[in-house]
Design a protein around this nucleic acid. Structure first.
Length: 836
RNA sequence: GCCGGAGUGGCGGAAUUGGUAGACGCCAGGGACUUAAAAUCCCUUGUCCCAUAUCGGGGCGUGCCGGUUCGAGUCCGGCCUCCGGCACCA
């Protein structure tokens, strides 16, 4: 789902080891090896997927890394006897396609589909085990029909609504943005500053799910802590109260606060310059001029400018508001540090106990009145240099004096509720999800505006609302290009049959990506988005892999969709994915992001032409553990190629030594019948299986490979082994590598005389009897310092080990003239002799 | 400011619950094979000091300071630096 364009160059250099990948890709295809069942055995099903891709050109090394990782998982699971679903698709709507279309004079669809074709060809050339029969493409009508269907379901259940408000607007992209896409006041696409605009737009009521989205994070045991923490912050729940202050004309003026216990310390009220409520207020004549002047200035400042300069500005409206508890009349200011989108867009100013209110009060000479005592004595407001935000005892608070901390909060809320002056309330940082986009290249919003009937959803049997493809001017003008296509816009109202208009906007592309995993389960279904029984069989996703960049966007939206679809009876799961893995990015050797403009992009097609698919995979995996970033350098190829050449020699040597054609690759050996060298090798072989299993499951493929490197180092040429033992070593080793080097392992499997496929040959099992050894190495420490190394029988008791240690020639000098006071024995590892 | 993550050789990186720091690989140096080169194989490779005809021996070392422990890369307290996210959230 990231985008950057690359070009490949062909290279005449031949790989150092033959690349058998085309041969095996064809064979796998003939065997239908990756075709997933519609209804798998629930106990054996395994659904693994990477985040689908934005088709912006050919794939780059980052994609190569991501998809070869899910590929490795899919293949190991196949070998373990699981029924695997590993599918892929294209997140094909979006701005870059339009930009490219404008630049190149192509239709966005033409550009998109040609990128899809190219990227798909590369993925197939890399041999990723996707079940291509399940490929989805979000810009095609058979997919977006169901994206529109999802919109209609949300609408029917009261979760899609239209409202006019200040929205994030990117003047460069000429479209509105969701909060998640405008984080930090910067457009996620063009990185330009985001401004505000007043528009009527479609929203999803994701805040109705805020509590569940937050609370259920605790159930996501297979998700990384970082993502969970980012989501918790983003949802940002605050407990407090909504309190009804009143204006002089008697109308309500409610604010949200997390500190109702400070209500007697309110010395001013403040409203955001862009708060909708402000427009309903009648500013006194004598103040109007100054307020208008301030508002004009405040609106001219972008979010970025506001953040760069923490200075708080404001103006007194001349209006007065009454404190519901103290009855005090306090001034109402407009202040630019108040956020229109949080709470009611207004706040109660308590300068003694809030740093921002404090700074504002100091600047405009407003009173500072402490009402919470945190230390030995009540502070003097005039002498304070900073606000005191701590919890404490209520003072100067009338009947509430003396209440401590939470008890004070609770008492004030109880009083407010009793007298209908307010109530306990929870606020979220998360806001409703703005869906409308004023762009062409997206799924049309399936809604019709009728002068008589109002908003009417397009009947489900009339979906999809096709995106018109004729002669359309894509240039963004600040309103949807579809608004200028009468054949599209003019419809008859589904309710009354009268003249009506379509909604001209398209949907945010994050809508398409919120449910795509469900379409993999039933990609050809033209009666429903997916079949419930198939979903029950395959869900949840067992392993989902993608970049950390989607932590607070896509990964919240797709959780939201899952919960919604459960609530309306389409799914039975509460959470979509059991394990989430965040892979690291691939950078150039200097640690720079690869980009066309920097000219540092490495092409996977170029790399595999020079080295072969599997050596590149090994070099990529070996560089670093899966979650960390890779600084890609060709230097990594050297070791990868040497390693695979060694394995190749070992396997071919084993094959030549084998007189007869057949042997059992899973044969366990009786340790007592093996030679010394074989027994050591057998132990190492079985230790390696254990280590590989452990490391693989954590996506620590670097140490997985290191373990096999160690193994082949200790096996040597294998010439001293019996031919059958040697062949079993080879067969085991190449199966341990098969998820990482699928083509070469398949080739070696054939060399050893087995029919394809190695992925149906089972995963090696540990022979526990091999792990036992006659002797073990024990480190000897004297007073915690390493002094020697002894070899003792594996069943030696502590006393015997200590006795052997004390007789060791390297240990003796350290014991001379001293007495041993204690011996600490760590079984199988060391003895520590304490001497004086 | 708040929330996460991370600091280990020349480099990428290893190190189950505290138990032999530097696995594995790259780079570098040396050797074998070869007419030669490539390829391949073998050896050395944290650092400092002592001894080297020879086996070797010792000190210091995981961002910094302190603590717990027989023993700390790992645990605790206090810092520093870097990366990522959010950011005037009342």
């Amino acid at each position: 789902m990231s985008e950057s364009e690359i070009h490949s160059t062909t290279s005449p250099i031949r790989p150092r080891i033959p690349d058998p990948s085309p041969k095996w890709q064809k064979r796998w295809d003939d065997l239908n090896l990756f075709r997933a069942a519609d209804k798998p055995d629930p106990a054996r099903k395994y659904f693994v997927m990477p985040m689908f891709a934005y088709p912006s050109g050919d794939i780059h090394m980052g994609h190569f890394r991501n998809y070869t990782m899910t590929d490795a998982i899919a293949r190991k699971r196949m070998m373990e006897g699981r029924e695997v679903l590993h599918a892929f698709g294209w997140d094909a709507f979006g701005l870059p396609a339009e930009a490219a279309a404008i630049k190149r004079g192509l239709h966005p669809e033409e550009w998109t589909l040609s990128n899809v074709a190219q990227s798909k060809a590369t993925l197939q050339r890399i041999g990723i085990s996707f079940d291509w029969s399940r490929e989805v493409n979000s810009c095609l009508p058979d997919y977006y029909k169901w994206t529109q269907w999802m919109f209609v379901q949300l609408y029917k259940h009261g979760l899609a609504y239209r409202k006019e408000s200040e929205v994030n607007w990117c003047p460069n992209c000429n479209t509105v943005l969701a909060n998640e896409q405008a984080a930090g006041g910067i457009c996620w696409r063009c990185e330009g500053p985001v401004t505000k605009k007043n528009l009527t737009q479609w929203y999803f009521r994701i805040t109705d799910y805020a509590d569940r989205l937050l609370d259920d994070i605790d159930t996501l045991e297979g998700w990384p802590e970082t993502v969970k923490s980012l989501q918790r912050n983003w949802i940002g729940r605050s407990h407090g109260a909504q309190i009804k202050f009143t204006l002089e004309d008697g109308s309500d003026f409610s604010v949200f606060t997390t500190r109702p216990d400070t209500i007697y310390g309110v010395t001013f009220m403040a409203i955001a310059p862009d708060a909708p409520l402000l427009r309903n207020l009648t500013i006194p004549e004598k103040r109007r001029g100054e307020v208008e002047k301030f508002l004009a200035e405040a609106r001219g400042r972008t979010a970025v400018e506001r953040m760069a300069d923490a200075e708080k500005r404001g103006v007194d409206t001349g209006l007065r508001v009454t404190n519901p508890l103290s009855g005090e009349k306090i001034p109402l200011w407009v202040a630019d540090y108040v956020l229109a989108g949080y709470g009611t867009g207004c706040l109660m100013g308590v300068p003694a106990h809030d740093q921002r209110d404090f700074e504002f009060a100091r600047k405009y000479h407003l009173p500072i009145r402490p009402v919470i005592q945190t230390g030995d004595q009540v502070r003097d407001g005039a002498a304070m240099t900073d606000a005191d935000p701590g919890e404490g005892r209520m003072v100067n608070s009338g009947p509430f004096d003396g209440l401590e901390g939470q008890a004070g909060v609770d008492a004030v809320i109880a009083h407010l509720e009793k007298h209908r002056l307010g109530q306990a309330q929870t606020q979220f940082h998360l806001t409703d999800w703005l869906i409308s986009r004023q762009r062409y290249w997206g799924a049309p919003i399936p809604m019709i505006h009728c002068a008589k009937c109002g908003v009417v959803p397009v009947p489900e049997d009339q979906l999809p609302v096709l995106l018109p493809k004729g002669n359309i001017d894509f240039l963004p003008k600040g309103r949807s290009p579809l608004a200028d296509v009468p054949e599209f816009m003019n419809v008859s109202c589904p309710k009354c049959g009268g003249k009506a208009e379509r909604d001209p906007d398209t949907m945010d592309t994050f809508m398409c990506s919120s449910w795509y995993f469900l379409r993999y389960l039933d990609p050809k279904n033209d009666k429903a988005p997916f079949d419930k029984a198939k979903a029950r069989a395959w869900l949840p996703i067992d392993y989902y892999m993608g970049g950390i960049t989607h932590a607070t966007g896509h990964l919240i939206y797709f959780r939201f969709f899952t919960k919604f679809l459960k609530d309306i009876g389409w799914l039975e799961i509460e959470e979509p994915a059991t394990i989430l893995f965040n892979h690291g990015m691939v950078m150039d050797s200097q640690g720079q992001v690869m980009s066309k403009s920097k000219g540092n992009v490495v092409s996977p097609i170029d790399m595999i032409a020079r080295h072969g698919v599997d050596p590149v995979r090994i070099a990529m995996y070996f560089a670093t553990p899966g979650e960390r970033e890779v600084l890609w350098s060709d230097a990594g190829m050297v070791g990868a190629e040497r390693f695979l050449i060694k394995v190749d020699h070992f396997v071919r040597g084993a094959r030549e030594a084998l007189a007869t054609a057949s042997f059992d690759p899973d044969r366990n050996f009786d340790v007592s019948q093996l030679s010394d060298a074989e027994r050591d090798a057998y132990r190492k072989l079985n230790q390696t299986i254990t280590k590989v299993d452990h490391d693989f499951e954590l996506m620590q493929l670097n140490t997985h490979i290191a373990a096999v490197m160690e193994l082949i180092g200790s096996l040597g040429s294998g010439e001293s082994f019996t031919p059958e033992f040697r062949a079993v070593c080879a067969a085991t080793m190449i199966r341990l590598l098969a998820p990482l080097t699928p083509h070469m392992s398949e080739e070696w499997w054939e060399v050893l005389g087995f029919p394809p496929s190695i992925f149906r040959a089972g995963w090696p099992k540990v022979d526990r009897s091999a792990l036992a050894a006659d002797t073990m190495q024990i480190a000897v420490q004297i007073n915690g310092k390493l002094r020697g190394q002894i070899e003792v029988p594996s069943d030696a008791a502590e006393d015997a080990i200590v006795a052997i240690a004390e007789r060791d020639p390297k240990v003796i000098p350290h014991l001379e003239g001293k007495t041993r006071v204690k011996a600490i024995h760590v079984p199988k590892r060391l003895v520590n002799l304490l001497v004086k």
